[in-house]
Amino acid sequence: GVGTAVDRDSVEEVDTNAKTLRLAHVYDAGHPVEECGVATLKEELQGSGLQIQSFPSAQLGNESELLEQVASGSLDMAVAGPSFLGVWEENAAVLDAAYLFEDVDHFVETANGEVMQTVFDDLYESSDIKVLSNWYYGTRHVTANKEISTAADFNGLKIRTPNAPLYLTNISAMGGTATPMALDEVYLALQQGVIDAQENPVPTISTAKFNEVQDYINLTGHMIQGVEITTGRTVYEGLSDEERTALEGAMQTAADATRECVEEQEQSILEEWKTGSGIQVNEDVDRESLAASAGEVMREQPWGDLYEQIQTAR
């Protein structure tokens, strides 16, 4: 047969009195950003006079377009990664640098710490884009058909990355050859051997089924990554003090909820792979040597000082 019957009671309720904020992002409706983050935000804001209307799956544009809309006031809120914020304020991109963070706690402390606050203030000053919150997105690892433990193992390996310059820099700094490619072409390209490897957080690897066409997941952990929740100046300044407090509180809860969801998924999927007969989990990765060779390149970037500052602050 074709399809399945639909349960009619699954329709969302709308509070007609509350001020509605449109929040858009590029992740699909089943992704933790929507399912945990945005869902928590909606829940927490109930009765606060604010409500979130969410637009997942790049309905209102890709990350750069969403940021442009937020900056000009056409959109109330957008979720965007550091590389995209870096287009507006160079230093914001540092959060996507390879081997910047020791662990997720280090990411959370830094993103909410003083150093980044200054950067985000500069962003607000220069571009009217206000960073409201940082949500943990995942830790990126490299999958391949061989075990990768040192920079030498990357030699001659063609690795797919998203088409953003910093991702390419990160991989080449670790010794690999980066090939930009759209995500939905990667599965076939891996299967056919057009590319040898790819890198992503564990939940993405699992939903895109890359574990079916790759032999090893090497726990390189080269990027401990977050996404920023942004709003524009007109929206932010239009909020009353109570609304701001409510929004900030809800954002904090949502950030915690997202982190919990992502970490839970990362652990359970990795556990499954470790016990299963499919993709092998290679934990024997010399992260220190990879981080050392990456660090040299990172310190030459425009935000090199910031990179060092964040690492030594730990």
């Binding site: 544009g61 890709n62 377009e65 442009e68 809309q69 000009s72 006031g73 056409s74 007109t234």
Partner: peptide, 14 residues
């Protein structure tokens, strides 16, 4: 009033 005309151009081009 919140939507800028430039956004129309952006979406057309995109």
């Amino acid at each position: 009033p919140s939507v800028r005309l430039g956004t129309a151009v952006q979406q057309t081009v995109s």
